[in-house]
Amino acid sequence: MAAAIISLPAAIRRGDIVTVRALIQHPMETGYRRDAGGILLPRDLIRRFTCHVIEGDARMLAFSAELHAAIAANPLIAFSLKADRDCVLEFQWSGDNGFVHRESRSVRFLA
């Protein structure tokens, strides 16, 4: 079971540009390395990261990234969003060996 940490600013005002940070525990094995016995370690990468904005029934892709072998283990992805609506942010990491991890956070504004 992977662990992931999503962080959003504690207090968001409508219209703010906020930095979203998404950190996940993953080996990001390149497929090019060998173990101590010389056996090739099978590739195990996160291939895609997405962040969708969910607003009622509407689901809109806000940010996505393709990940490759040169990305470090436990990748940290940070990006900016303009917080202009009440919504839920849905994060998904998917990759080799059927790996999928989902998290969601709601964006709430200061009164």
Partner: peptide, 16 residues
């Protein structure tokens, strides 16, 4: 920064 420190993933897993 706890939001970026990758070791916080181990803290979270350890808490579980």
């Amino acid at each position: 920064n706890d939001a970026e420190n990758p070791a916080m993933l181990w803290v979270k897993a350890g808490e579980a």
